[in-house]
Design a protein around this nucleic acid. Structure first.
Lengths: 134, 134
DNA sequence: CTAAACCCTCCAGTAACAGGAAGGTCAAGA
DNA sequence: TCTTGACCTTCCTGTTACTGGAGGGTTTAG
């Protein structure tokens, strides 16, 4: 059995985060020592490690909660997880495309700004270029 | 002079957002009609349009506030904006790299999940693959 | 006179925590 | 014995850039 500090070390999550997961309902309320300190079993740590891994893959806590609910019901969440992963991949691809467009736009503007003189009258600076993008 | 609804139409920002920008200090407190309704001049709309354009380039409001402060002081913000753009481009590139790594990892896991049978005993499902990534 | 379309302020919620205040607990050392 | 430091606790606030909604005033058309 581990105190929250040890659990933190073992899982790579901060104590704050572990408490937050409890409050958010991702893990059941931890058992307490007589003095009120939370204690965690190896099984608890496994659950926390799973959450950490899924978070590292950018799954929202809501999805992770769903997955864990499958497990808590004794059902294999695999099929569900596979579709979540597909959605996740699609969402990330979409986000990458958006960011690439944004970057291209920014590079274009930056190049334009390079070619303009520093204009004290503010008639032809890159700021106007931004404004003109509307 | 325009009411906030017209300003919204003209700028593509919602009325809510315009009020929020006022509260956040990005635009000065709007003049009011005797009945308390906000009124906006063409100059105000220009400022709002600038904010919208900069937001479309994903500049945080804080940066935009800085840029506008330059303008309000009568200084050309161009050099400052150029460095902000460079930072922005670097940040976006960084984010893209992170997302690409994430996607690659997800694809790897997804492929592994494809090759596993649906396992009622939950001994060999993709969820364990996730857990093993820790 | 009323209904629709405006506008106002204020409050809550979003995602996933982090920071910090104020205080209880426990083991080791002077 | 006392104290110091490292733990732990709860509770509250702040983060980003808004959005939604409650509850209410104003104006215009029919």
């Amino acid at each position: 059995m581990y105190q929250i500090g040890e659990a933190s070390e073992q899982t790579g999550l901060t104590a704050k985060t572990i408490r937050y997961y409890e409050e958010a309902g991702l893990i059941p309320p931890a058992d307490r020592k007589p003095n009120g300190y939370r204690i965690y079993s190896d099984e608890d740590l496994d659950r926390l490690r799973f959450i950490r891994s899924a978070r590292a893959l950018a799954f929202p806590l809501e999805d992770i909660e769903e997955i864990l609910a499958f497990r808590d019901r004794g059902e294999p969440p695999c099929l569900y997880v596979m579709t979540l992963m597909e959605d996740q991949i699609d969402g990330i691809s979409q986000r990458i495309r958006e960011l690439e467009q944004l970057r291209a736009e920014l590079r274009r503007l930056h190049a334009r700004g390079q070619s303009l003189p520093e204009d004290v009258d503010m008639k032809s600076c890159v700021c106007h270029a931004i404004q003109a993008e509307a």
